[in-house]
Amino acid sequence: MDDVPDGSNELYARLAAFEGRAAVVSGVGKDLVNEPMIRHWCEAMGDANPAYTGPDAIAPATMLQAWTMGGLSGHTGHTGHTGRSDRSDRQSAQDELFALLDGAGCTSVVATDCEQEYFRALRPGDRVTFDAVIESVSPRKTTKLGSGHFVTTRMDIRAGGELAGTHRFRILKYAPVARPEHKRRVARPRPVINRDNAGFWEGVAEHRLLIQRCAGCGTLRFPWLPGCNACGSPEWDTVEASGAGTVYSYVVMHHPPFPAFDPPYAVGLIELAEGVRMVSNVVGVPYDKVRIGMPVQLEFMRAGDEDEESEANEGNAEWELPVFRPAHEGARA
């Protein structure tokens, strides 16, 4: 990532003038911190920490931003930086900034990272309030996606008037690089195989999906780990998965483009019949038809081709990947 000349010092001066401007003033969480949302979060994350249940429960610290989100209907009743309470104006400083970036050709956006700091535990019944400010706008940068500006927004989140934490969210507003009309075929990258997961990939080569089982407490685990995260035992054996599962969650990948893949495509978090979850591609169905709860069945997909014309493919003989297709389509192992 490199700095590039803005082409107009005046443009960056206008962008930098947004630093310090309020994006949200006196925002109020739509719901009190509550046990059902904490439970849903912990179930989704697989976090069974007892601190999140019972009469003295606290909310997971990483839920900090969740209590500020407006959902599909958005927020109403709090003021934006102009002081008006209409919902359309609450983030008008950001709207103005983004309009200026759009006008400069930076019409695409991608989230790059977030940072959180925690100062006070949130508990069921807390009413969350928040303010947000445009903290920084970077000079124009060149990335593989294109050239543009990083915009960082800081949100200060309070409960009972006391600072509970801060949330910094950074995006890149950029002008996308023109994609070549003809792309050279590039092999799918091979998985990284090490001493901890070699047995898994040996099973895949034999068209067997193996799950680790702790020899101490019997807990199944995936992905493969050197020890049990339930009892700490380093001893284990394996069980073979039946191949049946459901889509627990999924995302549709659009960016960044990679020559070995053809976005958009679906990546699913598959809950196997045995109870563990794994990340894999959902194939045999259009990406926009994948649904949470969809029954799927394991199959093994051949990848790599030593005939492909790329230096990266040299010696890249065919190998196998576990993927899932809708169960009604049938498995083709």
Rank of each mutant, 00 (worst) to 15 (best):
Ala57Gly: 04
Ile171Arg: 14
Thr107Ala: 06
Ala59Pro: 02
Ala99Ser: 14
Tyr52Gln: 02
Gly83Arg: 08
Asp102Cys: 06
Ser108Thr: 06
Thr129Val: 15
Ser85Cys: 12
Arg84His: 12
Ile134Glu: 03
Pro124Trp: 05
Thr76Gln: 11
Gly71Asn: 11
Arg170Cys: 12
Val110Phe: 06
Met155Asn: 07
Pro124Gly: 04
Pro55Leu: 08
Arg168Leu: 15
Lys141Gln: 15
Pro55Glu: 08
Gly70Val: 00
Gly160Trp: 00
Met45Phe: 02
Ala66Tyr: 02
Met155Glu: 10
Ala51Met: 13
Val133Asp: 05
Ala61Asn: 04
Ala99Asn: 14
Asp89Thr: 15
Arg140Gln: 08
Glu162Thr: 15
Glu117Ile: 00
Leu163Tyr: 07
Ser92Lys: 15
Gly74Leu: 11
Thr68Pro: 00
Thr79Arg: 14
Ala104Arg: 03
Val109Gly: 04
Phe150Gly: 03
Glu135Tyr: 05
Gly83Asn: 08
Leu97Asn: 09
Arg154Val: 14
Val110Pro: 05
Arg90Cys: 05
Ser147Thr: 11
Arg158Pro: 00
Asp131Gly: 10
Glu115Pro: 02
Leu64Arg: 01
Ser108Gln: 13
Cys106Pro: 00
Met155Asp: 00
Ile134Ala: 00
Ser108Val: 00
Leu97Ser: 10
His78Gly: 06
Leu101Thr: 06
Met63Phe: 07
Ala104Glu: 09
Arg168His: 04
Ala132Glu: 10
Lys141Arg: 15
His75Ala: 11
Gly161Cys: 02
Met155Cys: 10
Ala104Asp: 12
Thr153Ala: 05
Ala99Cys: 09
